[in-house]
Design a binder for these strands. Structure first.
Ligand SMILES: [Mn+2]
Ligand SMILES: [Mn+2]
Ligand SMILES: [Zn+2]
Ligand SMILES: [Zn+2]
Lengths: 141, 141
DNA sequence: TATGTTATTGCAAAAAGTTGCAATAAGGAG
DNA sequence: CTCCTTATTGCAACTTTTTGCAATAACATA
């Protein structure tokens, strides 16, 4: 299934329009699969779609995140990165070497239930980054 | 105990100097107790210490965070806020009304142990924000 | 297919955050 | 108290991100 076929209905269902800009950006996120910064997205997407502006990239990434097609994350430097929304997961990141690994959401299920019953909140988002020292970097401590 | 008496030794112990700028910023964080944006810190601190620059505020907040005297957090808009480092805690934030509440770190202890044994990482930081819907906003869904 | 509505974009200007470097001042040594 | 070393600051230039608004284009309707 093409990106257009996959994502257009999702936007329409929510009353939004598919545009060449949104499609180009979704395409980049979809096929990279990794966390990308807005300027990385701009870089790649504007190769396919000349005339695309950074303003639009910022706005579109935020829009896609709000509507569940992309997920934002903080990896520790104070800037957002984005990835296409697929399976729920979280991250562990090493403060020293920067190594990153994924954590299945299942590991956090219990915590989510506990937080919900302790607070009355219903937790919606998942894509948390926890910081620490990777096995390698612990040795040199 | 004054801010100077409390924080100067902590910096000295790590080989750093106490300065009027650092003291003014620590004073603001200490007495506000809340999460503050860099520009809120600048606003308040420069009232006490004319000539303070925003550059220095940014650099100092990052410095204090690296050295454990302040804690950075993301509250959902992609920008850092900072608070004085006291007890370990996390946050729950409502996506709709913006309401925020604290969560004791004790509630996350089990998860931290689980993540550590599953990954080999040693988790160091704590000050995570989880997002969801507060009890009030769940009604209007 | 042509038309109207309005969501979305690009542009220009502003705001927020970062960086390199020379001047300043904290604090250890004499 | 004075001098010396160098961590720290302020300044200016730069990069990144946000915002208001007029022009554009998606797409529903006829
Ligand atoms: Mn991820
Ligand atoms: Mn906090
Ligand atoms: Zn590491
Ligand atoms: Zn709420």
């Amino acid at each position: 299934m093409s990106c257009a076929e996959e994502y257009t209905p999702q936007l329409r269902a929510r009353g939004y329009r598919m545009t060449s800009q949104r499609l180009a950006i979704l395409h980049v996120l979809h096929h990279s699969g990794k966390h990308l910064t807005p300027s990385q997205v701009y870089e790649k997407a504007s190769r396919k779609l000349g005339g695309l502006t950074e303003t639009t990239v910022y706005r579109t990434l935020e829009f896609l995140a709000e509507n569940g097609l992309a997920r934002p994350a903080h990896m520790g430097n104070g800037h957002f990165v984005y990835e296409i929304a697929r399976h729920e997961h979280h991250h562990l990141k090493c403060r020293i070497c920067g190594d990153e690994m994924e954590v299945k959401h299942a590991l956090l299920e219990k915590l989510y239930r506990k937080l919900e019953s302790a607070s009355g909140y219903r937790l919606t988002d998942s894509h948390v980054t926890f910081f620490g020292l990777c096995p390698n970097c612990q040795k040199g401590e």
